[in-house]
Design a binder for these strands. Structure first.
Lengths: 162, 162
DNA sequence: TTTCAATAGTTGCGTTTACAAGTAAAAACG
DNA sequence: CGTTTTTACTTGTAAACGCAACTATTGAAA
């Protein structure tokens, strides 16, 4: 697709396209492992430390119920293990199995570099730095603006039937 | 969530978070209309011109079968109409109904501005321009790099059982 | 032509998703 | 303490997703 054809050149839409394509690439890459991008994120995240399900959800951006079922699958593939926290019986601690750790260790170094490399090909180090800064600020904006844009209804004088 | 906690500050992941949050906001905004973000995109896109299903898919980034079913729903809500192309019997031309056009016209001006405004709050015009340029270049990189990063399997000396 | 291939769109189907409801443990309250 | 609320996670359910298979039309090949 030639994006120059796109009339909608808004930042959110362009970013949507970029993210979608990266996810497709990563999903294809991770298919032989039986994972999709969320699973890959979980795997790599657990390299740094064991995590509760809640922490994992927060850190990977995966919805909680989705994550719970993903963990069940990854458990079945012997990549991760769940154990109940002994000090807080509500929490479940997720950790890598030996197999999961080997997998993560083997692929992590390549993974992050590869995708950022493709994405930011031809970027000067200054541009790369600027981009990262701007992206972080956008995320800040989203999190600090508790005030949502007005809804389609508030915006609408006469009610539209669903 | 405080993104400063995130260890993974890679551009793809940060963009993933941003896009996800924007989609949630837009979905909430569009719920009273019976639409989600893809439907909103279709609606606004059709303001400029009638389109075939294929064109719409390409222009909105929605997968074809998903789009087909979305169109059926939007047809049921009397927002769009489908008619077969008389010059090419394979194509279906999608257009706005009167109701759909009114809806799109009412909301479009507000919509784009609102979300870009939230996202890029506090950005100087220079920063905004830089961001747009960098984003477009990332999209270019994805589309020109036909060479995918090597797959997890090629990368893996000993095969991992699925 | 007749046949074969390519394009456009829809639908069948198994998987995944997200919201909400459910279970269970801990914390807060009185 | 007993009661209520909050927190952590899982599961039920209906809807949505994407791949692949299918139908139909057009284009190319021989």
């Amino acid at each position: 697709m030639d994006h120059t054809e796109l009339e909608d050149r808004s930042i959110p839409f362009l970013m949507h396209l970029i993210v979608g394509r990266v996810e497709n690439l990563v999903n294809a890459w991770a298919r032989p492992l039986g994972l999709k991008i969320e699973g890959v994120r979980v795997l790599f995240r657990l390299l740094a430390a064991d995590r509760t399900v809640n922490e994992l959800a927060r850190l990977t951006g995966v919805e909680l119920s989705t994550l719970s079922r993903l963990l069940t699958r990854m458990e079945g593939m012997d990549m991760i293990a769940r154990r109940r926290d002994t000090t807080d019986g509500r929490s479940v601690i997720v950790s890598l199995t030996e197999k999961g750790r080997a997998l993560a260790l083997r692929h992590q170094p390549v993974y992050f570099k590869d995708y950022e490399t493709v994405l930011m090909k031809g970027f000067s180090s200054t541009e790369a730095r600027q981009l990262r800064e701007l992206v972080v600020r956008m995320l800040d904006n989203l999190e600090n603006s508790e005030v949502h844009p007005r809804s389609a209804l508030e915006d609408t004088p006469n009610r539209i039937s669903a």
